[in-house]
Design a protein around this nucleic acid. Structure first.
Lengths: 216, 216
DNA sequence: GTCTATAATCAGATAGAC
DNA sequence: GTCTATCTGATTATAGAC
């Protein structure tokens, strides 16, 4: 019981490794890779500067560690949703819903860690340099499965149009994940960047009709 | 005529101020504000390091100078397009076309300077920190005009849905402007990030139908 | 695992000569 | 306007004590 008490008392002190990842996740998402120093990350995580290096090596390796931590889980869950419904008759809306999983995930967990990660994902998606380095690692397979699934419900579509429509969807998704706060300011409070629930519910029909128009 | 000859001979050497802006534009767009040093910019512009400071002051001031250079022109042109058609009966497609002006502009000029600037605009649009600082300066008025114009053709829409749909449009536009090259890789060459012509032509009907579905 | 101390480098900014 | 030289501070990364 001493053990338990000690664990509880030091709850904030244990697992420094994870705290480094959490702090890095938030700061990288907000300011980008070059906008953050290891010292800032260490300070936010309330650990020593040298500890980040001890656990993760170079700054670039830490960045990869942060990105990879949730990428595989995201991709796997997306795959499950996409393929589990495959035998059942899928509508265009259902396929898109499955792909917009990050939004649903954030809206359900309400976890700040996931919210930060999704903003980081948006950063990587929209950056010319990081997109090339990071996105292919895990997400490519899911995108190809998504495009294939779309062909079944949009038999008249050609590859070029499908890819452009996927690109528009990807952009709408990325800006949502980024949570820039712009929609809050423009709408004068009527909408909120962090309201993934509404973002998700309106986005599905918006995109589905766009796909139908261009690829129908 | 000596003057002319001298001007022509030194064509590459004159206008160092503009060369600094051009180089900064390209590098900031590619690597972000913190990913670029003044020394890199000076080297790319083939000028001395101290010259950037002489002309533009601090690094942050240079960043603003780069952003502002084309922002006002972009906003003004957008305003002209939106209001010139106001008396004539406007369709939803026409309104969206007017707002997607950056794409048309880049596709028509074929200018590398504009292409770089649009990538920089995408960087600012998707960054939580820069969006807040830079976007309100010039573009807010145009967005509100755009929303107002939409109300005429979508009389049943409410403010919240209109703003979310604008947000999706903004995301699709931003990712297009960013030219990350991802669509090239995913489509295995069938689409190109720099093909603003196609991006524009497919984007208008895609978005218009989305607006109709959600705000109709 | 954790921290102190430090090496080596590079950043932004400017003073001052021309 | 342009360049040389330099100041000041911060950054990554690591070696070594505990």
């Amino acid at each position: 019981m001493t053990k338990t008490a000690a664990s509880e008392n030091n709850l904030k002190e244990i697992n420094k490794k994870d705290r480094i990842l959490d702090a890095a996740e938030e700061l990288f998402a907000q300011h980008g890779y070059d906008g953050v120093t290891i010292r800032q990350i260490a300070k936010a995580a309330e650990v020593d500067v040298a500890l980040a290096n001890y656990h993760f090596g170079k700054k670039l390796d830490l960045f990869h560690a942060v990105f990879d931590r949730r990428a595989q889980l995201l991709s796997d869950t997306r795959r499950q949703l996409l393929l589990s419904e495959q035998d059942a008759p899928q509508t265009l809306e259902q396929i898109i819903e499955a792909f917009l999983l990050p939004l649903k995930m954030a809206q359900q967990t309400g976890d700040a860690g996931w919210r930060n990660y999704l903003a980081l994902l948006a950063y990587v998606m929209t950056s010319p340099v990081w997109n090339k380095i990071m996105m292919d690692k895990v997400f490519d397979k899911r995108v190809h499965e998504f495009i294939e699934a779309l062909k079944n419900v949009l038999p008249n579509a050609n590859e070029e149009k499908l890819h452009w429509c996927y690109h528009y969807m990807s952009g709408a998704l990325a800006l949502t994940l980024a949570q820039t706060g712009r929609i809050d300011r423009l709408s004068m409070g009527k909408c909120e960047s962090t309201d993934f629930d509404t973002a998700y519910k309106l986005m599905v029909p918006f995109l589905a009709e766009g796909f139908r128009k261009v690829c129908g």
